[in-house]
Nucleic acid binder design. Structure first.
Lengths: 119, 119
DNA sequence: CCCAGATATCGACATCTGTCAATATAGATT
DNA sequence: AATCTATATTGACAGATGTCGATATCTGGG
């Protein structure tokens, strides 16, 4: 491990880790990965991510996402922020609208970490 | 979908779902999958799972696990229970000792769901 | 049968989390 | 500028969660 884990974001940590099943996670790595998993550990955020990811071009407007749920607009905004902060979604503003896009590597790396495919 | 989701456990739900990125999760599926992800969304449980999984034969005694953490025995017991209840770990008692083993399919399926590998 | 050790359960507590209503901000249109 | 619409932020609150100490349960050995 050439770089100290301290400098890495959750996504970067996941990208460089062996699968869960191959060798024990260090306490540091676990502390760093948990927030990423936690961001996924909510039914609304799972659906949000899935909606964005499966949308045309892996990109969706907040206005569309709001309509897909029976939740207040601030609540959806909050969940999107959580997903954005851990690096699972990117934001881009175009005019009045905000578009969120998935970061496929982040999902792929996390899937590999959990699923045991070589990472 | 031939069987109602209502009859499926979290692990079974994950096993039958398309990857997050392929098509939008239904609200039902998301509600069912979230507990499984939530069980992983804690640094202690990530390490526990990783310790068990990477142990000899994918099996570890609680006594060994307790020693790996600076936490009380009831706390470790609680975390193991969480992992067991969602189906990520199996329990087996041999004499006074309790051994936990990973369910590799559960991890593999969850990894595929998140990572986008065909499920 | 009683004790000692391993693990689980209980009850309590502080902290974190999801949600909403109210409000703020920012961009487009008139 | 005034206003409308889209999104974010704030503050509040109920409920969930991680942790511990105390205690219960189970099992093997004396």
């Amino acid at each position: 491990m050439s770089k100290s884990l301290i400098e890495l974001t959750p996504v970067q940590t996941v990208a460089c880790c062996s699968p869960l099943m191959k060798e024990p996670l260090t306490a540091d790595a676990a502390e760093r990965i948990a927030p990423l998993v936690k961001a996924l550990a909510d039914p609304v955020r799972l659906r949000l991510l899935s909606l964005v990811a499966s949308h045309e071009g892996g990109e969706a407007c907040v206005c569309d996402l709001n309509d897909a749920f029976d939740l207040s607009q601030p609540t959806i905004s909050h969940h999107l922020k959580v997903l954005h902060e851990v690096g699972l979604l990117d934001r881009s503003k175009r005019g009045v609208w905000v578009y969120y896009t998935v970061r496929p590597e982040a999902l792929t790396d996390l899937g590999a970490l959990i699923g045991g495919v070589a990472g």
